[in-house]
């Protein structure tokens, strides 16, 4: 099964290293976790004698980000995405390796650095629940020393882009999850950060709100030229926003490059969906490619990417077809295949 997969270079070499706004070089983070077996007896023992296990959360990760880029940062749960973001936002020191953002070492937490970045975490809130979001915004205005006029301008822009309207004057406690996320985003952007780290910004919100937040991130990036590093479990977020993706798995970098090129490499085929006139025709389709699904008068076929035009031509000439569409394989499947391949490879062991 592995032989069908083209081998992946650890990461692509990028010529424009010098112009990058984010440099990450051989970045690694090892956590020392307290290990405790289950059971009361073991718990009592661990009170006196603690055993520790080293967990490599991030291992030798290297990549650059250009100013104004939106990069999708992908990987399954526990891959090391959040740990990497936290190091870049200055919340964690790396165990080894280095990173600079706008020329700063993030973990020094210099005032000038913190003033030009933001980290949004979809599963945590910075807004005070007991007061309206607007009051928390005013606190941020003072903290970030945003001049009054600039604050008003940015706020107006955010209210318009995110459609905040009267949400700002209600206590945050009373807002829906999606509404709260919009306010969280606004709070994180009032100081106009030049680099934005988004960790699952659409987590748990409904599809409409996901679309809205996604469009907002794209708009914000276009308007301000901010650089964005985004993690998400929703591939729709990534396909809509990111031309380039960085994929990590078990702390190691698996892929860095074009999202489309990734699909080409991992799943070098297209999916042809057909509606046919008669049952017999549907059954004959297996001759043209790998039949993924045949139900009644509907069928879908998997065909090699390069041969797609020729095969479509032959089908149209030889089979009575009502409708035909050609699609890329779903990106979820691509990513899934990539992770599974690495797992069975045994090449990325902890």
């Amino acid at each position: 099964m592995n032989s069908t997969l083209p081998s992946l270079a650890a990461h692509e070499t990028r010529a424009d290293h010098a112009s990058a706004i984010v440099h990450i070089h051989a970045l690694s983070k090892t956590y020392r976790v307290h290990e405790r077996p289950a059971g009361l007896g073991a718990s009592l023992v661990s009170l006196v004698r603690r055993t520790f296990k080293e967990v490599r959360a991030v291992s030798d990760v290297t990549f650059d980000i250009q100013p104004g880029e939106i990069v999708g940062f992908l990987g399954p749960n526990g891959a090391g995405k959040t740990t990497t973001l936290k190091m870049l936002a200055g919340l964690l020191h790396p165990t080894s390796g280095d990173a600079t953002v706008m020329g700063f070492s993030p973990w020094r937490r210099e005032t000038d650095y913190l003033r030009s970045i933001s980290l949004v975490m979809g599963n945590r809130n910075q807004l005070n629940w007991d007061i309206p979001a607007m009051d928390s915004f005013l606190v941020n205005q003072v903290i970030y020393q945003i001049p009054k006029r600039e604050f008003r301008e940015t706020l107006d822009e955010l209210v318009e882009l995110l459609d905040l309207g009267d949400l700002l004057t209600k206590p945050v406690r009373g807002l829906s999850l999606g509404e709260r996320m919009k306010c969280e985003l606004a709070a994180a952007l009032l100081h106009r950060p030049k680099v934005l780290f988004l960790d699952e910004p659409t987590l748990g919100v409904d599809v409409t709100m996901q679309g809205r937040i996604r469009r907002f991130v794209g708009d914000y990036n276009r308007r301000t030229g901010a650089t964005v590093l985004l993690t998400s479990h929703y591939m729709a977020d990534v396909t809509a926003l990111c031309k380039r993706v960085v994929v990590i798995h078990r702390g190691r970098l698996l892929y860095d490059g074009d999202l489309e090129a990734l699909a080409d490499r991992i799943m070098p085929f297209k999916v042809i969906r057909l509606d046919v006139q008669e049952q017999a025709a549907a059954e004959r389709l297996a001759l043209y490619g790998e039949a993924v699904e045949v139900t009644g008068l509907k069928a879908s076929l998997r065909v090699p990417r390069a041969d797609t035009p020729a095969i479509v031509g032959r089908i149209l000439a030889e089979v009575p077809v009502l409708d035909l569409t050609v699609e890329d394989p779903p990106i979820e499947d691509v990513i899934d295949l990539l992770f599974n391949a690495t797992d069975s490879d045994g090449s990325a062991q902890s």
């Binding site: 936002a89 919340l91 005032t111 913190l114 809130n125 910075q126 970030y144």
Partner: peptide, 10 residues
């Protein structure tokens, strides 16, 4: 959530 305090330039 202490992270939010550490993220602030103060």
């Amino acid at each position: 959530t202490l992270d939010f305090i550490l993220l602030k330039p103060v």
